[in-house]
Each structure stands twice: as structure tokens, then as C-alpha cells.
């Protein structure tokens, strides 16, 4: 109970980012390296100009030393995001995006924006996506009841953002409801 309230109820965004950075990503190395053992596993060998798959944290590290180019994931480009934004605004449900797209796209845009095509356009698309999805979360709040809530395709960052107060309000509703309606 010594943890502060905000840390007790959910993870922090940087923690989520850390988790997301365990995911593999393709890079084009500029240096060669033998297969090397790390605590989380063995990666490599790196043989330019062949592509290699390494965790994102390693790709970011190499990238910041200018020792690789990062190959953008297939969903991180203008056409794909534009398509999803179109669906997001025209359909009631959340559109289908990778679970940790917010974290991955942010770190890639921060560190490797020169490996992406048209990073500014991607940034603004991601922002629009986020806003459209937030509006839907808000609508979900209106239909909240004490027992369940189904928001498919919500991504980890969004879940984390709404978790504290969704959980608390569902808890309250459970308390206030005298006889929870039995299952139909």
C-alpha cells in the first residue's frame, strides 16, 4: 500500500513503452556483428546489407548510433493509417490496429523519423486516430454498467488511460445496484 495511488491502479505510459520495445522489428544493419547473447535472448548475426530481426529497444539503440536503418512495420505508413482513420470515423467500432501501435509508432517517430516516409503526415494521422478513438471511449462511458464492458480493438495505451476511472466507476455501480439483474 506504500505505492502512490496512480501507480497502484495501472501501469505508467513509460512502462508500457518499455514493454512494447520487446517486440521484434526488422532493421537493415550498417555494421556486422556475430550472434550475441543478451539477457532476453540471442540476436543476430548482423550482416549488412541483409535484413535482420531484433527487438525494438536494440534497433533504437543502434539507430541512435547511426548503425542501422529501421524498416517501418507494415502498418506504419500513410496509406494504411489513412484507411484506418477512414474506418474509424465512418464505423461505430474501433478499427483494427496493432495492440501496441501507439507506443511503437511514437518511439519510431521520435528516433527514426528519417526512415519513415512522410513522418509529419503519419504524425497527424496518428493524432487524428487517437482523437477519434477517444471520442468513442467517451461514448462507451455512457453505456457503462456494473458487470461488463466490451471494447474490442482498444489498444494498450488507451486501455491504460481509461482503466483507473472505468474500474472505479464499475465498482461504484456494483455497490449502488441493489439486485444485479440476473443473466438473461
Amino acid at each position: 500500500m506504500a505505492l502512490q495511488e496512480s501507480l497502484r491502479v495501472s501501469l505508467t505510459p513509460p512502462e508500457l513503452e518499455l514493454i512494447a520495445c520487446q517486440q521484434p522489428i526488422e532493421i537493415v544493419p550498417l555494421i556486422s556483428m556475430e550472434r550475441t547473447a543478451f539477457i532476453s535472448g540471442a540476436y543476430g548475426p548482423l550482416r549488412p546489407p541483409h535484413k535482420a530481426t531484433v527487438p525494438i529497444w536494440m534497433a533504437l539503440n543502434l539507430k541512435s548510433k547511426k548503425k542501422c536503418h529501421i524498416v517501418a512495420p507494415e502498418w506504419l505508413n500513410v496509406e494504411f493509417l489513412q484507411d484506418r482513420l477512414g474506418r474509424e470515423t465512418s464505423q461505430p467500432g474501433f478499427s483494427d490496429l496493432p495492440f501496441r501501435f501507439a507506443e511503437v509508432s511514437k518511439v519510431l517517430l521520435d528516433v527514426a523519423s528519417d526512415d519513415l516516409e512522410n513522418p509529419d503526415k503519419i504524425r497527424s494521422l496518428l493524432k487524428n486516430l487517437r482523437e477519434a478513438r477517444q471520442a468513442k471511449c467517451r461514448d462507451g462511458l455512457g453505456t457503462l454498467d456494473h458487470s461488463e464492458l466490451s471494447l474490442p480493438n482498444l489498444c494498450s495505451m488507451e486501455i491504460n488511460e481509461i482503466r483507473p476511472f472505468f474500474v472505479q466507476s464499475m465498482h461504484l455501480l456494483t455497490q449502488l445496484q441493489r439486485q444485479p439483474p440476473t443473466a438473461p
Binding site: 496512480s6 505510459p13 513509460p14 511514437k106 521520435d110 528519417d114 488511460e161 483507473p164 476511472f165 472505479q168
Partner: peptide, 28 residues
């Protein structure tokens, strides 16, 4: 009770917003 909810939501939104806007990596 509503106040408590209010501050929960505010805190969480703040944290997320800070993360989206800031970065500890040097921008290139």
C-alpha cells in the same frame, strides 16, 4: 466519491498526455 473519480481521470489523462508530448530521447 465523484471527486475521487474526477482526480483519477485527471491524473491518468495527464500522464498519458505527458507521454505523448514528451520524449527523453533527443529529437533528430
Amino acid at each position: 466519491t465523484e471527486r475521487e473519480l474526477f482526480s483519477l481521470a485527471q491524473e491518468s489523462a495527464k500522464r498519458t498526455k505527458r507521454w505523448y508530448e514528451e520524449s527523453d530521447r533527443p529529437k533528430r
